[in-house]
């Protein structure tokens, strides 16, 4: 190409295109907050467990029954934010569960302070490749929990392991899955 005259493309056009790129990246930066949550929920990235309905669970149970799935050990872990005056523990340390079977586990939480506190639990499983197959039907982590001064509650988790986990090569040597919760003092979300 010979001698592109500087007037062929206007400076303003190039500048506005460049500014458009910058604005698009700015928008993507802000959009990353909801996108990141969505990405983790869909893929189980970072050990984000799945949510299932009763009918999903029934389907999984039939599938497991026909395929003859084995058992797996689930370990329970609990911790709380340093500033939260709660005592939060699992009621059992492990459960040996049949894959595909619905299981109920309990955690207990006690508010040791003299004021009512609302908490919100974050959760994940380890190893992280188990997350796409770890389904919760009911969980205290789905909603915020408010404990009155000195109140102690038992909180259930209803879960099952998807029988399709048996076909996942990444799950081949996984014998135990740890389900972990951390309670934080809830902030009024925007």
């Amino acid at each position: 190409m010979a001698a592109a005259a500087p007037t062929q493309r206007s400076n303003a056009k190039v500048a506005f295109m460049a500014a458009g790129f910058a604005l698009a990246m700015l928008g993507l930066g802000f959009a990353s907050a909801p996108l990141y949550r969505l990405f983790c929920q869909v893929t189980g990235f970072g050990g984000t467990t799945m949510r299932a309905t009763e009918s999903d669970a029934a389907l999984a149970e039939r599938l497991a029954a026909s395929a003859g799935a084995g058992t797996i050990s689930v370990r329970f872990d609990a911790s709380q934010d340093r500033g939260l005056p709660w005592r939060f523990r699992p009621a059992q340390s492990t459960q040996q569960v049949a894959i595909g079977q619905r299981q109920m586990a309990f955690y207990t939480a006690r508010n040791n302070s003299d004021r009512a506190i609302t908490g919100r639990a974050t959760y994940n499983v380890e190893p992280e490749q188990a997350a796409p197959w770890f389904n919760k039907i009911q969980c205290f982590c789905f909603t915020e929990q408010t404990l009155q001064p000195g109140e102690e509650v038992r909180m259930p988790v209803l879960y099952y392991i998807d029988p399709k986990a048996k076909d996942d090569p990444l799950m081949a040597d996984v014998e135990q899955v740890t389900l972990s919760y951390t309670f934080h003092q809830a902030k009024d979300a925007p």
């Binding site: 990353s32 809830a186 902030k187 925007p190």
Partner: peptide, 20 residues
């Protein structure tokens, strides 16, 4: 302003800040 983009107590994630 009370948002919780990076605060687990409000449903956010501090790791997201590190990614960004």
């Amino acid at each position: 302003f009370g948002t919780t983009f990076f605060d687990a107590g409000g449903g956010g994630d501090p790791i997201l800040y590190q990614h960004l």
